[in-house]
Amino acid sequence: MLKKKRSLWLLTTAFIFAQFAWLGLLGLWIYWYVSNYIIFEQVGTKLSPQIVINSPDVLIFSGGIVLIVAIAVVMSFIFRYFIVQMKMTNLYDNFIANVTHELKSPLASIQLYLETLISKNVDETRRKEFIALMLKDSNRLKKLIDTILEVSRLERKVISHHYNIYNAGAILPAVARNSMEHFRMPENSFTIECTAVSECVLDNAAMQIVFDNLTDNAIKYSPDNLQIKISIYEKSDKIFIEFSDKGIGISGKDLNRIFSRFERLSNPNNPSVRGTGLGLYLTREIIKSHGGKITVKSEGENKGTSFMIEIPVYKDQSGSYLNTLLKRSSKNEIRDDKDGRE
């Protein structure tokens, strides 16, 4: 970390020094050119009548300036590129550290229970408890690996979603409820309201990941008051899913960063949050692939967070994005069937 900070400092210093050097050179050049021109004009003909200067060579002079300015601009671009690269490397390093931790912790726990079961005389009740804990950890590992693979597929654009037409009023509350059950949310800690009636095009499994990620997020960031409210409604050919919690919220400056890949926000009020920085990035990519968008708002820290998802209402129009999704999806299914038969 210290090395990176030092190299950033060196890079910035070198860049500023280079800019001063270019500008200094430019200034000196102009000064030299103008003063020499004046001298030649005043005494040149007296010293040597052969020297005749009618006018300064404006083309060479201005061409030189343009070249120096161009070099300075290119250097700025290179500098900016390096800064972005350094930021990405930093995020990537954090991601690797987080993933390593997220992989090792459940693995260590599973190993601990296996060794305990082998080496100790564990009674039946405890044995069952330990097996349940191992299952919990193996699910955690599975979820982490699935997320990483899903993101990798998304980035290589080889993901094969299976889209179908659903009634939004039936499918979305069911998917939301699945998530609540998956995370064992108490009945009084969430509400699901739905007034949407139109059809929409969804990949059921992918939408489940979206709801799971948002629920997981709400749980992580609501240490004291876990209350989730999901409102599903439609307006102007769009289906809206508003997913709100009463957790620690997000400060305004962090709102733009929340969907970035590898990005993890730190909050001193809730520092326990573990993760990889991929969950909300994956969520956004899935919603985008459904032809929709996701935004987030928060009144500020400790005032809860609200995610708003928009997906288009399905209308049978040839050539529309949703129809293209459905066609692509049926091709995938045929291919999957063939693969299955083979």
Binding site: S105, S109, L112, Y113, T116, K120, E129, F130, D137
Partner: peptide, 16 residues
């Protein structure tokens, strides 16, 4: 230890 699953296992073994 903030990992519940790990803590339960460690607590069991140390108590044992």
């Amino acid at each position: 230890e903030d990992e519940e699953t790990m803590a339960i296992g460690l607590e069991y073994n140390l108590t044992d």
